[in-house]
């Protein structure tokens, strides 16, 4: 029985590691400039934690195999090093592992959050609401018209509750349903929630950030691969949560300019 258990456990441990080593199911390739640090962090952790995982599971299996159902006369063996040894080992091994990864991780994190967007970054506003994203480009004047919550109206397509007749800034704002951005240009994303909590998640972009109702956050990133990617909502926001999504289209600068013109004409 014990031997069967040991074998099963080892098979399970190695079996669960295979798909990871094979990258059978793995995060898609990264298209952001800040992503590489995150991916590195991921693979480092995978290596270290993975080894700890295999090591501890296999040790468990071996000990169960060796030390179960022994002869009644058998003596109780003392673990070399005893408890103190183990405690020290834990502090040294895990401690260093934790500090190292913690430090690198902090670097990766800081790379995204602890630096202000550059002045020439392109502002785009995203509004999340049950159950769709809408995006707003400031237009030539570079200014967003103020949001009037009382004017927000899906029916009349006034998603942001702008009032072009009264505020000039709003006149040239361009509202779209997809987020198109020029490649290799830093985007300054201004996040606004219309109703409840939502989240902005683009796996390829290595970006996930919640929308906080009543608190407008901002986020900045640079995409460096042209393509079409999925933006999904990852914060439970109601019955439509599962298909609240939009697309991120990374284009060359001229494609983008063309696209923006065309969108403007449709307003």
């Amino acid at each position: 029985m014990a031997k069967v258990f040991a074998i099963t456990l080892i098979l399970i441990a190695i079996g669960s590691a295979i798909p990871i080593v094979m990258h059978t199911w793995y995060p898609p390739v990264d298209i952001s400039t800040h992503g590489p640090l995150i991916d590195e962090q991921m693979s480092d952790t995978m290596a270290e934690a993975g080894l700890s995982f295999l090591a501890s599971q296999i040790l468990l299996a071996i000990f169960v195999w060796k030390y179960s159902d022994r002869a009644p006369g058998a003596k109780i063996g003392r673990f070399p090093g005893g408890a103190m040894g183990l405690v020290i080992a834990a502090f040294l091994l895990v401690g260093t592992e934790v500090l190292a990864l913690g430090a690198f991780g902090a670097r990766a994190w800081a790379g995204i959050y602890f630096n202000a967007p550059t002045p020439d970054s392109m502002p785009v506003q995203v509004q999340a609401g049950q159950f769709a994203f809408y995006f707003r480009y400031p237009g030539p004047d570079g200014k967003f018209g103020p949001i009037h919550p009382d004017l927000v109206n899906e029916g009349s397509q006034n998603f942001f509750g702008t009032d072009p007749d009264h505020d000039a800034d709003a006149k040239d704002d361009i509202v779209t349903a997809t987020l198109a951005i020029p490649v290799n240009k830093e985007i300054h994303l201004l996040m606004h929630s219309k109703d409840v909590g939502h989240s902005f998640f683009v796996r390829e972009l290595r970006v996930q950030q919640d929308f906080v109702p009543g608190l407008d956050l901002s986020l900045h990133f640079t995409a460096n691969k042209i393509g079409k990617y999925e933006i999904v909502c990852t914060q439970l926001c109601g019955l439509g949560h599962y298909n609240m999504k939009a697309y991120l289209e990374v284009m060359s600068q001229q494609d983008f300019d063309g696209w923006l013109k065309q969108q403007a004409s449709m307003q």
Partner: peptide, 21 residues
Amino acid sequence: IPSTIVVLIWLGSLYGSKLRI
């Protein structure tokens, strides 16, 4: 770390024990 210690103590105690399955 404390979690690791807990696990290691279990493993270390299994070592040389007379485990009844």
